[in-house]
Amino acid sequence: MAGRRLVSAAVRAVAVASLLMFAADRLGAQDPWAVPVDAAGCLARHAELRAAPEDENNLAARFLLHFACGALAEARSDVAALRRLAPEGPLGWRFGLRLDALDPSRHRRTRAEAERFLRRFADDPTVSPAERQAVAGLRDWLAAELEHAEAVAAAGRRARAAPFAALALLLGLVLLLLARTRADEG
């Protein structure tokens, strides 16, 4: 379970980081973080963006708004629509990141795939400084998440094994007491 969440979270994080930079780039002079601070403002902006033509800028702004508000279903729809409109788009797709194709319980493979992606990314001369900055934070986050997932998996293994070890010790005590009583009886 921890691995599955990690993989989906990693995919989300890569998508979010790349889409935020993509959105910032496409929105040009606009402040990509200018999402209204209150619910009423966000809902008004949502209505305004829904009424406008659905182009890359519009979808990027919608994604930023929906993600900031936690409307993740809407944000996922925005991503899907952006992928259809801009297949050459953000760096996750450009590099063919396949984290979502991995076995979620195999942390070593997840780590290996993530390292492969990050190496290709680091070697690509077309990556902008802003994208590098976004992914630098992502690398640290991913490393921490992998470490946490591995710690949780190890704890799970300990928690499954510990009762059997404890039962063995307890049975040992019982057998020892039984042997003593038999010796006394004998």
Partner: peptide, 21 residues
């Protein structure tokens, strides 16, 4: 419902009342 929400509510409440949520 969205039209009646007063100003000053946290933006996450907007997310909570959108159809996908």
């Amino acid at each position: 419902l969205a039209a009646t929400l007063p100003g000053g509510l946290p933006r996450e409440l907007a997310g909570a009342v959108l159809p996908g949520q």
